Amino acid sequence: MADAPRPTAGIDTPDRRGRTGLDRHGRDLDGNPRVRIRDVEVLSSDWFVLRKTTFDYRHSDGHWSREQRETYDRGDGATVLLYDERRRTVLLTRQFRLPAYVNGHPDGMLLETAAGLLDDDDPETAIRREAAEETGHEIGEVRHVFAVYMSPGSVTERLHFFAAPYESPPRAGTHGVAAEGEDITAVELPFAEALAMIRTGGIADAKTVMLLQWAALEGPFAR
């Protein structure tokens, strides 16, 4: 007699984040009549979730094909550009990013706007939390700028973009949640210098580039 299949963490039993049923995500989607979800397989759920989805797709000429795509689900996130309109400065963060380091960045130390995952919070609550953790600043009124999918070919994350004023220079020392291995430095730059660093490659983080360009075109530093 064959042994019963062993239960799988994240599907039959809770994984280390207490989740089950991760293979059901997306199976009930019916918003696009050209897409029929056939199967969802969980490849990994160590912390975030990597899935392989099989679906039928009706092409523009009417024929159907069977397709497979992998999606990486890390939840949605939020980011904020902190700016001082009077002094014409912005407050960014610098931290090590392994994926950038292994893909050609000289040292992996990226200049970025403060950001983080929503977890169980709404976007505004989350970005207030992240700004305090990463820069040491409690921010006041925030402006929601837009929300976009940052890498829709493979990553499910939708990122909410905010802007908020700050008044005092960054505090010395490092920031972040030590238990999560964060070692973050707050960096204040003249806005013109930060904008120029996009062209030179000194700022190579997409969300930061988007917010700096927004600030120049429509935001606090628009002419």
Rank of each mutant, 00 (worst) to 15 (best):
T125H: 05
G108C: 08
T125W: 08
G62A: 05
T93Q: 06
E124Y: 01
R129W: 11
L91G: 09
D122S: 04
M109Q: 11
F146M: 14
R74P: 12
R66H: 10
G136V: 04
D61H: 04
N103E: 11
F96A: 04
G140W: 06
L110V: 05
A114P: 15
R97G: 02
A115M: 14
P99M: 07
D73N: 10
E85V: 06
L110W: 08
F146K: 14
G104S: 01
L118K: 06
G77L: 03
V142E: 01
S65G: 12
V145K: 02
Y83S: 06
L98T: 05
E133N: 10
R97L: 04
S65F: 00
V148G: 01
E67Y: 01
G136H: 12
T89R: 12
Y72C: 09
D84A: 12
Q68K: 12
L117V: 07
R128C: 09
L91R: 06
I127N: 11
H59M: 07
D84I: 10
H63M: 04
L98R: 11
E130M: 03
G104Y: 00
V102I: 14
D76G: 04
V142Q: 02
M150Y: 00
R87P: 09
I127D: 14
H59G: 10
D76C: 08
L118A: 10
G77H: 09
Y72F: 13
L81Q: 03
G108K: 02
V102E: 12
G140K: 06
L117D: 08
V90E: 09
A114G: 07
G116V: 03
Y101F: 15
V102C: 09
R128K: 15
V145G: 01
S65N: 04
M150W: 00
D120H: 11
L82Q: 12
I139Q: 12
A131R: 04
R94E: 15
L111E: 02
V145T: 09
F146D: 14
R129A: 08
L118D: 10
D120G: 05
S60T: 03
S151P: 00
I139V: 15
L110I: 09
L111Q: 10
E138T: 15
G140C: 02
H59L: 14
G136E: 04
Y83V: 03
F96D: 01
R129E: 13
Y149H: 14
S60K: 11
A131C: 15
T93F: 05
R128D: 09
W64E: 10
T113S: 06
P123N: 03
G104N: 03
A126D: 09
A131V: 06
H137Q: 14
L111I: 14
